[in-house]
Design a protein around this nucleic acid. Sequence first.
DNA 1: CCTTTAGTTCAAGGCTTATTGAACAATTGA
DNA 2: TCAATTGTTCAATAAGCCTTGAACTAAAGG
Lengths: 118, 118
Amino acid sequence: MSLQHPTPDQITLANVLAALGDETRLAIIGTLARNEGANMTCGQFYDLGSKTNMSYHLAKLREAGVVWVEPCGTSRLISLRRETLDSLFPGFLDSVIATATKLPLVAASAHAEQAPIR
Amino acid sequence: MSLQHPTPDQITLANVLAALGDETRLAIIGTLARNEGANMTCGQFYDLGSKTNMSYHLAKLREAGVVWVEPCGTSRLISLRRETLDSLFPGFLDSVIATATKLPLVAASAHAEQAPIR
DNA sequence: CCTTTAGTTCAAGGCTTATTGAACAATTGA
DNA sequence: TCAATTGTTCAATAAGCCTTGAACTAAAGG
């Protein structure tokens, strides 16, 4: 029996934004985008946190409608719900991914301080 | 003395996404976008929640770098940080606004239920 | 000066989130 | 069948979030 995913009409922008508003999950998305087409499984994210923790974050992303998770043997194949998101929120995913793919894999703290620009 | 705003290099995508990942704040952004150029003040958002509550949400948006708040007499003028956000995250704000401006002003609960599409 | 107007700050509440380790399920391969 | 692999669920904890009303500040106008 396959996993529960929201249908397109159940996906809200607020939920998607909240799901992506987290360093760890943004890093997951960045990794997924960098490896689109590659058959990503949960295990490939364990450098971002513990097994349990990844299970938690991947469930969040799935429940918000950001990723699709497909059981496959003992593994689960994870992919971005590109078409769904593109059709609901045109341009959104691309703009997020453009930044997310450039983000450090392991979070380093910000340090710079600058004069206010506007 | 003017209010505290993050400089562009202090603005992170995760913080912006988290700030926008809330129905109330998304409604604020939608209202701001619908009235761009109009001299919006805090008071214009009191249909979205109490005075105190708006103060809280507007502070969140300001601290994340999404809005600029400029004291003006006893009021404060609120505007989207369009240029900053556009230059940091091209296409992002437009895609969010496209949906946010169509969102109901007062949150009505979702009701539809459909067959799973993919 | 006194009042009104426009927002903020504070403390408290209740709720949700992120993270962990231990225990559990389910599939695969020997 | 047994063991290894892959991932989930559970309970617990610590931290953060949203909302509220009461008290406060600060500017503007009479």
